[in-house]
């Protein structure tokens, strides 16, 4: 399976640190960059996504706004716990348009990915879309 879209990977958001009911976490994985999840104050902010099954993830692409520093962790367990660090990135400020960043995960096997936004360019940040590139499913 190559360059799978996030929906065919059976993705779910299982945890999000903020919840504005008009901009729920599910907006990140609906494939639509016009809808977004918005943080509601203070850092760090985090969310955890779960794959339907263990997936070999080569990279994730994130459409966001005002995110400054992002850490990505993963695990291979059934539960959303015991994460290990994979990658971190300082995102550039893009005024008036979305930030689009691809983060290489080097083909890590994962059942969950945890995104930790440690700082932002504003009090509030938004994530519009997450896409994962999976090289193969692990049997």
């Amino acid at each position: 399976m190559n360059e799978s879209s996030i929906r065919s990977l059976g993705l779910k958001v299982v945890v999000a640190a903020s919840n504005d009911e008009n901009h729920p976490p599910e907006n990140m994985i609906d494939g639509n960059a016009n809808t977004f999840w918005m943080s509601t104050g203070m850092f760090p902010q985090e969310f955890i996504i779960r794959f339907a099954e263990m997936t070999n993830v080569s990279s994730v692409t994130l459409d966001s706004y005002n995110v400054k520093h992002l850490k990505v962790e993963k695990n291979t367990s059934e539960n959303a716990s015991h994460f290990e660090f994979v990658e971190e990135k300082e995102l550039k400020l893009t005024e008036g348009q979305l930030q689009t960043n691809s983060i290489s995960l080097g083909g890590s096997n994962a059942t969950h990915l945890r995104f930790i936004i440690t700082s932002g360019y504003d009090h509030f940040v938004a994530v519009h879309k997450i896409d994962a590139a999976a090289s193969s499913l692990v049997v």
Binding site: H23, T94, Q97, L98, F124
Partner: peptide, 11 residues
């Protein structure tokens, strides 16, 4: 801020 983000054009 929410309104400003709503009015952003996709990147």
């Amino acid at each position: 801020r929410r309104e400003a983000i709503q009015n952003l054009s996709p990147g």
